[in-house]
Design a protein around this nucleic acid. Sequence first.
DNA 1: GACGCTGTTCTATT
DNA 2: GAATAGAACAGCGT
Length: 276
Amino acid sequence: MPELPEVRTVSRALNEAVKDRVISNVKVFREKTIVGTSPKKLILAVGDAKIERVTNIGKWIVYLLDNDKVLLSHLRMTGKYYYYKDKQKPTKHTHVVFDFKDGSQLHFEDYRGFGTLELKDKKDYLDVKPLSKLAEEPQNMNYIHFWDKLQKSRRAIKTLILDQTIVLGFGNIYVDETLWELRIHPETPGNQISQKQAKDILKFGTYIMDWSTSLGGSTVSTYSSINNIEGSFSQYLKIFRKDGKPCPRCKSTIVKTKVNGRGTHTCPECQVKFPI
DNA sequence: GACGCTGTTCTATT
DNA sequence: GAATAGAACAGCGT
C-alpha cells in the first residue's frame, strides 16, 4: 500500500489524533503483528506512557513515547489505522487496539497481515535494525553519494531505487512515475546511469512525492489514511496502472512488464532501452 | 474454482 | 558479498 507520501500523510494524521494521549492498555489480537517482543512485554513497556509525537522515517511510522521507548510501525501493503473517540468493537482484521486514558482508542487493522509494530529503546533505535541501514529521503540525499551507489551495481535502476538502503521512500508507484518522467528505461543497469540522471531522479522524486503528500497521497486501490480518508493524487499519475492506455507524452501504448518480480509500467517509445 | 495479480520487506539460496 | 526467488497473507479480477 503506502509509499513515502502516504506514510507521511498517515503519520501526520496520527500525530493529530493521538499526540499527548496516555496509553492505558494494549490489546493484541494477532501475535505475529508484534515483532521482536511478546505482546505481554509490549503492554508492560507502553502502558501508562504518553505519546509525545508521531512522525515517520521513510515508510516507517515512529511513535515517540515519554518514557525510554519508541514504537515503530510499518503498514507494508494494507495496514491501516482508525482512531475512535469511543470504544469500538474490533473487526475480523483488527490486530492491535490501544486504549487511551480518556476513553478513546486507536485500532491497527491489516487484512493481509504483513503490517507490524515493534518496540525499541529510544537511546539507540536509529542504530539498530530495522532503521539502521536506511538511506536518506531524496530531498536530503547527496546525489554524488547516490550515484556512487548506483555505479556499484548492474542491477536494474528500478530495483535499485526501490532498495531503501540506497534511497529512502520510493515504492512501486513513484518509481514508475519518476522513470517515465525522466525517460529512463526501468531495466537500465545502475552503472549506466549518469550523474545528471542520478541528480534528476532525486530532484523529481522529491518533487512528485512532496506534491502527492500535499494531496494526501495516491489512493489507487485500497490505500487510505486513518479513518478511511482517501488521497487524491492518483488523478495525476501518468503511467502507473495505465497499461493499454496512450502515453500522455507520445501516445504510444503503455506496456506492463515485470522487473525483478514487480509490475512495471513503461512507455516503449519514451523510455528507450539502454544500449547493451 | 483456479490462477495470477496486488502500493513491502525479510530470509534463504545460489 | 551480490543478486534472485520465495515467503509472509487475504482478497479481487479474469
